[in-house]
Design a binder for these strands. Sequence first.
DNA 1: CCTTGACCTCAAGTTCACTTGAACTGGCAG
DNA 2: CTGCCAGTTCAAGTGAACTTGAGGTCAAGG
Lengths: 147, 147
Amino acid sequence: MRDIDIAEVAQLSGVRASTLRFYEEKGLIASHGRRGLRRLFDPAVLDRLALIALGRASGFSLNEIARMFAPDGRPRIDRRALAAKADELDRTIRRLNAMRDGLRHAAVCPAPSHMECPTFRRLLRVAAARKIGEPNKAGKARRKVKS
Amino acid sequence: MRDIDIAEVAQLSGVRASTLRFYEEKGLIASHGRRGLRRLFDPAVLDRLALIALGRASGFSLNEIARMFAPDGRPRIDRRALAAKADELDRTIRRLNAMRDGLRHAAVCPAPSHMECPTFRRLLRVAAARKIGEPNKAGKARRKVKS
DNA sequence: CCTTGACCTCAAGTTCACTTGAACTGGCAG
DNA sequence: CTGCCAGTTCAAGTGAACTTGAGGTCAAGG
């Protein structure tokens, strides 16, 4: 099964064709040739896409991910960057844990108004803790295929 | 200390004035009056901002957060939504934990290339697991004040 | 041979959450 | 009174990550 076409890559990876073209343009993936106009991909592109998904899921931007591939195409992952990202993830996880507990509590809190619940107010302080207004974007799972 | 001005709110909350205006326009906060052109805020806006920060940190969008305030201005938080978000957070946290462990390992992995490391490949599978290409945005801590 | 339909390109549009710029206003210090 | 300057409005810009649309191409099936 040498060389698969964009529809098949999309099918197998769950990444839309338009996104694959976009990624190619960005240099995140490469097509191996063409049949007529049509891109032909090496099945290895699936690993690459998994790697990209990993990076995205870990909070790297596409640009950061792009920088992680050596010019020759093989991953040249910076171990220090990985460790740093792991630490960052750790902090994020701790925050999210507090959030989750707080939300969970708020969901069952008997106080008439959330603002009167001490636990909720504590949660508020946690949220406000690291400088109010610093978005952290977690758990943004969106459109699967668009309804 | 009745009524504080936008600069003070910015100062106390860490939210930029431009953002505060933007939030007001979006209906997320309200100024209590004006002295000349200048907005005057009730110090309670700080609680409100903390609430917004909480929502953002938990993964709610500004629009979702806006919907959480009753027309009268007091939080009308949907407990079911909170519980759902808590569950979502839980799933996110589990994923991030796997990520972090994987990253941590990758950072010290002795394999010559990450692609040859079984742990790394397992991590890749985890990342690819729930439909490759589903971004999850975690740990995006950015600009504090802009360098 | 001719149609079809998946794929192509390129430009523009979209969403989110803000930020920036230009032009203007008005309270307050001097 | 005057001028400063923090504040104001409104429109447009930003950046990330894609998606959409218009119009074009070409390999394969009938």
